[in-house]
Design a protein around this nucleic acid. Sequence first.
DNA 1: AATTCCATCTATTGAGCTATAGAAAATGAG
DNA 2: CTCATTTTCTATAGCTCAATAGATGGAATT
Lengths: 211, 211
Amino acid sequence: MSAVSASTNRQRASQRRRAPQIIEAAAQVFAERGFHGATTQDIADVLGIRQASLYYYFSSKEAALELVCLRGVEGFFEAAKAISTGPGDARKRLILLIESHLSPLLDRGNFIKVFLNERQFLPTESRRRIGRWSRGLERIFEDVIKEGIAKGEFRADLNVRLVTLAILGMCNAASSWYGKENFSVATLAAEFARLVTDGVDKRPAGRRPSR
Amino acid sequence: MSAVSASTNRQRASQRRRAPQIIEAAAQVFAERGFHGATTQDIADVLGIRQASLYYYFSSKEAALELVCLRGVEGFFEAAKAISTGPGDARKRLILLIESHLSPLLDRGNFIKVFLNERQFLPTESRRRIGRWSRGLERIFEDVIKEGIAKGEFRADLNVRLVTLAILGMCNAASSWYGKENFSVATLAAEFARLVTDGVDKRPAGRRPSR
DNA sequence: AATTCCATCTATTGAGCTATAGAAAATGAG
DNA sequence: CTCATTTTCTATAGCTCAATAGATGGAATT
C-alpha cells in the first residue's frame, strides 16, 4: 500500500475521533429546527467551533443529513428481521416488534426524529435507498400480521396494510413527544403493545386467549 | 360610516376573492417542501404570478403559514366537542372522534399536513395559541376514555394519556401517506376505530360485548 | 370622460447562508 | 526540539431569498 493511502487511512481514523460528536450536534440541531431551518452556524455553536470548521468533517450540509439519517435507521431492520424469523407465536413476535421499534428512542431520539421528518430532503439517491429500506421494514410487520391471521391468532378481517401503517404511525409519533411526556420506553412499549393486541374494550374476565 | 372605511371594506372583499387560491397554493407548497424549504417564488409559480405580487395578500411568509395552519385546525375542536358531549356510550363516541378526526384529510390534506409538521415554525404567540388548542383536543379524547373506564366499558388498566397519544399519533400519521395508499377515508376510519376498540387478537365468537 | 381603486408588475435592496481558500495553531512521533 | 500531520481559524466569494418601492394597466364608479 502506498504512502498516500496510508496517510489517507490515518486521516480518516483521526477524523473519526471527533466525528461522532459532530454528527450528534447536527442531529440535535436538525431535530430542533428542521434541515432547512437549521444553519451550519447553529451546529458550530453547539460544538463551540467556527462554522467553516465543520467542513473538515463533512463535505456539505446534505452529507451531514445523510450521516444523521443513517444512524437514525441503523439497526432497526436487522433487529426486526431477527424477531420476525425468531421463536414465538405471531402475537408474541408482534409485541416484540413494537418494543424493538420503540426502544431506540431512548438513546437516539434526535437521530430518529431527523430520519422521520427530514429524510425527504436527502439527495435523490440516498432518499430512494432509504425508501426501499423503509418498505422492507413495513414488510416485516405485514408478514408477521399475515402469519397471525393464517394461524388464527389474529382477526381474519384485518386489513394488513392499514394495521401496519397504524402501528408504525403510532410508534413513530412517539418520537415527537417522548422526552416531554413522563413515560419510560418500557411503559410506552407495554401500553402500545397491549393496545394493539387487545384494544381498549373491556371484555368478560377469563375469556381472553392464554398468553 | 366614513368614505375611508367603506373603501377599506371594498378592498378587503376583493382581496378575499383570490385569497383562498393564494392560501391553497401556499398550503400545497409548504406541504411539499416544508416551510423553510419552500420559497415565496415556489408559491408564485403555482399561481402563475410574480413573487412580489404575493405580498398584496399576506405581509410575510410567516403570516402565510399562520393562515394555512388556521385552516388546518379549523373545525376539529368544535366537531370533537360536539361528539364528546353528544349521545351514545363512551365506546361509540370514541369511534366517532376517530372518524371525525380523520375525515378532513379528504378535502384539506395539505392544510393538515402543514399544521402537523410546520406549526413549530409559527411566531411565538400563534404557536402558543395553537398549542393550547391542541391540548384542548387531546383533553376531549382523554375525557371520553376516562368516562369509558369509569362506566366499565374500557379496561381499567388503560393509561389514558398514552392511549390518547397513541390514537392521535396513528390518525395524524395518515396525513403523510393518505393519497399514496389506496384507501378511502371511510375504510381508514373503520379499520382504525376497530383496531383501537378490539385490537388485532382474535377471540372466541359470541363473547364480545354487544355493540 | 375623468377619476379612483385593485391587482399585478419591474426593479432592487440588504441580509443571511453555504462553501472554499489558505493561514495558523495544536498534536504527536521520533 | 523538529517536523509532519491534523484540526481549527480568518476571510470572503457567490448565491438565494424575503421584502419594499414605486410604476402600470385595466375595471369600476361617478
